[in-house]
Design a protein around this nucleic acid. Structure first.
Lengths: 110, 110
DNA sequence: TCAACATATGAACAATTCATCATATATTAA
DNA sequence: TTAATATATGATGAATTGTTCATATGTTGA
């Protein structure tokens, strides 16, 4: 009798793409950063505004924004002594949307 | 002179949804797990098959599959002494697809 | 029944992550 | 120029992560 299935050529991602994807998801894998992104999904904000709304220290917000920027999930723009942050592009919205759908499907909230 | 913008009501995610999303992305945030998911995107496989193709120890693969299953990214099905793993649902394909698009846009490969 | 095989899991340890604290840099207003 | 404000960042330490090793559990074939 034959095996479970025929042998199939296996396509692989390059190590580089794998690592870049892992880094992207890593940047998304923290509740504080999720909160920040969800705020910025609604409107662009300064560091202080984010810090106030989330009740997270200025330093912590700044550190997290740095990570988000590295992963190109947010962009920033200096205005006087403030730094205004916004979501980087439409992919971020879409990934976020898919993720919400996924967790809603898995966990039956409320 | 008025401020940068009008005050706007801020919508928030529940702490539960935030944490669940963070967990989902956390499960996706590791190169080995990315590799595994990319294999399973192409065909369902047993633990040993995954281990052989990725040249990662049986134990490591098993541990990682456990995490992926917890995040409901993969399903499994026992067949004799083997355990066959596959992607859980279509969301996984879509999140994966968005992520690849995102990194391709950011990093100009090749 | 027993040996071989497939998978799962607990312990341990190195590496990474994240918040906090202190402080640096830059901009504005007085 | 100086004080106040906005942001960034390095060091530190507690918590988490991911691999390896050893071993347990479960299944099959001889």
């Amino acid at each position: 009798m034959m095996g479970r299935k025929e042998i199939q050529e296996t396509e692989m991602l390059s190590a580089e793409v794998e690592q870049d994807m892992a880094n992207l998801f890593q940047a998304l894998s923290n509740p504080t950063r999720i909160k920040i992104l969800y705020l910025l999904k609604q409107q662009s904000l300064t560091v202080t505004e984010i810090s106030d709304r989330l009740d997270v220290s200025q330093s912590a917000v700044s550190h997290q924004l740095r990570e988000l920027k590295l992963a190109r999930l947010v962009r920033n723009q200096k205005q006087g002594r403030e730094m205004i942050y916004r979501l980087d592009d439409d992919h971020v919205h879409q990934i976020f949307h898919m993720a919400i759908e996924h967790v809603k499907e898995i966990y039956n909230y409320e």
